[in-house]
Design a protein around this nucleic acid. Structure first.
Lengths: 240, 240
DNA sequence: ACCTGAACACCGTTCAAGT
DNA sequence: ACCTGAACACCGTTCAAGT
């Protein structure tokens, strides 16, 4: 009879869960193995959890449960919760394709802006994490570097390349921010009860007028509208 | 001998604090009175606390202590912590001067953009709160309405006025966001230890080159640079 | 080396009890 | 009507103890 080794106590404790989810069996069905915990596995689990339940619901205890491990075990592979946050931020930035330095700069910047917004739409929680942790992980740094490279190659001075990057980043963050704060809601009428709506018409005439215009938020369209204005405005400041 | 009334037990418990800070005396120095708790007083105290220590340090227990009251007393005047957050957001938006509808629209928008950025610089925590709570309190709504009014009066269609507002809001939020996330730090070199700096030069050539350019962040200047580009870009889309 | 249970110092919030 | 203490169900994190 096979001895399960160090994991046997796990089986005893959560038999059902272990059998169905967390243990994988070798081909001969004799030796249950549990994937060893790593920082990457923890970060991946955290990303999946935040995608499904939101970051505010993420706790060390719940994350441990997701990995069939006690919360305290995580600290063997991760410095603390902030370290996990940093990993999650890096995960998102690593997922954004870098710009092609040989492409026309306006097309490259437009593409990269849309790609950034896509990533922030897919993982809205990253905006919150950036607020808490900043954005200076290696992937964010690489992304920043390549985008600045595009501006530089286009002919912008160092100072203007910096301004251009800062502007692109702020535009993207700004829309991602609003999208994360108010997902799929009408900007102007959300939270307004019907009894307040009557008063609104006199107090907030412009908002009231624009309300019906916006069935829902098309953040991506609105983002692209502004992106084009910014790119054109930057192009006008390009020395020739 | 004067009987202090219902507040006497407070005096007994925190004599020192009460005498020096929380009790004010009538002109005849006989009757100590404690200002009664109100939602406004709680919100004001929360704003002051967040200004000094940051929002993440704000707790019901500490806020209570600031007002010489147990945490649970706050719930008599406020629904919960989110309600306080909403009050703090409204406090900030109420502090931004509304645009003058008779001023030239480009000047009015520039002024309002700067005023918004000023408020977010004075109370950086509001960006975090907007992420958690959204921005649909009465003061934010009024502010939104008046700014849209400026665009409308300038001749923008309803749809473009909405786009313009959204763009202005995102630009402001984006810079305020970055400023709040990375206050007075050099964007590119923060968190990079000296041993990593050598590697940086080859891995991140553009960032390395721009680093020395930026002794510190001039978010306000950078914000204004982008603001002008946006205003010019919007003006170009104005029908004539 | 890695995982664990118990513990610590915090949270927001409820509720019955006080005045 | 307003304030309070005790309690509940959570946090992140430490640490000595297990294997």
């Amino acid at each position: 009879m096979y001895v399960y080794g160090v994991n046997v106590y796990v089986r005893c404790k959560h038999v059902k869960v272990d059998l169905e989810n967390s243990l994988s069996y070798d081909a001969d069905m004799t030796a249950p193995t549990r994937e060893t915990l790593t920082r990457d596995r923890i970060v991946d689990a955290a990303v999946a959890f935040a995608d499904e339940h939101g970051v505010e619901a993420l706790s060390m205890r719940k994350l441990g449960a997701e990995l069939d491990v006690e919360a305290m075990s995580l600290y063997n592979h991760v410095a603390n919760k902030d370290d996990i946050y940093d990993g999650m931020i890096d995960y998102v930035f690593a997922s954004i394709p870098l710009p092609d330095p040989d492409e026309d700069w306006k097309l490259a910047i437009r593409r990269i802006g849309m790609a950034g917004m896509d990533a922030f739409t897919l993982h809205p929680w990253v905006v919150k994490l950036l607020m808490v942790r900043g954005n200076f992980g290696p992937s964010a740094m690489r992304f920043t570097d390549r985008v600045i490279g595009v501006f530089t190659k286009a002919g912008f001075s160092d100072e203007d390349a910096h301004h251009a990057w800062q502007m692109l980043a702020s535009h993207t963050m700004g829309y991602a921010f609003q999208q994360a704060a108010n997902p799929d809601t009408n900007h102007y009428t959300v939270g307004m009860g019907t009894e307040q709506f009557a008063r609104m018409a006199e107090e907030f005439p412009n908002v009231t007028r624009l309300g019906p215009l916006l069935e829902c938020c098309e953040y991506m369209t609105e983002f692209a509208f502004g992106l084009d204005i910014i790119i054109d405005g930057l192009a006008a400041r390009l020395p020739r």
